[in-house]
């Protein structure tokens, strides 16, 4: 998708159609997908600024002088980022995180990385809630920082959070040792992909690749 030329409007239409049909097929509500796309908002600001900032040939649109190159660039980033984000969200909302991790392992991502990522995901919520409780604590003491030199309390929270996380890591390690951990993680529930699974998995990327090639022709 990223390699598709930006002039091929129809190709992006087909990509979008592909994602929408997958979404419907997976019974993921379209509205929740769209709402989650809000994560992109900071980039939209940059994208909107592009036509004004880029150089090159300029055209007049409703009284504003815009750069043609900037408009193309903005369109290019907008459509690719949005479609890319939508695809990933579809994956995240249809596939449990353990399956994604298992898939990564099968795809030869180093097992250490997969194991660390697994731990991070498992404990991210614990640590984040710990941080939220500290935030409630700070706020209930009337902490409302406005300027940078008031951030001392934030920093002590961060430091305390690090010590707690690290010590939790040490405890987890001891717990793992006492359960017979010897340096490698046990295999996650093994699922073998059958040839039909592979075929099904390759269907959509294959279609996308064909579109990309056609768009270049």
């Amino acid at each position: 998708m990223v390699a598709t030329p930006r002039e091929a409007f129809w190709a992006y239409g087909v990509y979008a159609g592909l994602i929408v049909s997958l979404t419907l097929n997976a019974r993921v509500p379209l509205r929740s997908l769209i709402r989650r796309l809000a994560i992109e908002t900071p980039f939209l600001i940059f994208v909107v600024a592009l036509p004004f900032l880029a150089r090159g040939e300029r055209i007049d649109v409703v009284g504003l002088s815009l750069s043609v190159e900037g408009l193309w660039g903005a369109w290019n980033i907008l459509v690719k980022a949005t479609l890319g984000a939508a695809t990933v969200m579809l994956l995240a909302s249809t596939t449990p995180i353990t399956s994604i991790l298992y898939g990564l392992q099968k795809l030869r991502v180093p097992s250490v990385i997969v194991a660390i990522a697994g731990f991070m995901i498992r404990y991210a919520d614990v640590i984040a809630s710990e941080m939220r409780r500290m935030k409630v604590g700070r706020q209930s003491r009337g902490y409302e920082p406005r300027v940078l030199w008031q951030v001392r309390a934030l920093a002590s929270s961060a430091g305390t959070l690090f010590i707690r996380s690290y010590e939790r890591g040490e405890r987890v390690h001891l717990a793992m040792m006492s359960r017979g951990y010897s340096g490698t993680m046990p295999e996650l529930a093994a699922v073998e992909a059958s040839p039909t699974d592979w075929l099904r998995a390759f269907l959509v990327p294959a279609v996308a690749a064909v579109i990309c090639v056609l768009a270049w022709l």
Partner: peptide, 11 residues
């Protein structure tokens, strides 16, 4: 490595 790096990543 795994538990410590995992927890630090969560941090």
């Amino acid at each position: 490595q795994v538990p410590l790096a995992g927890l630090t990543a969560a941090f």
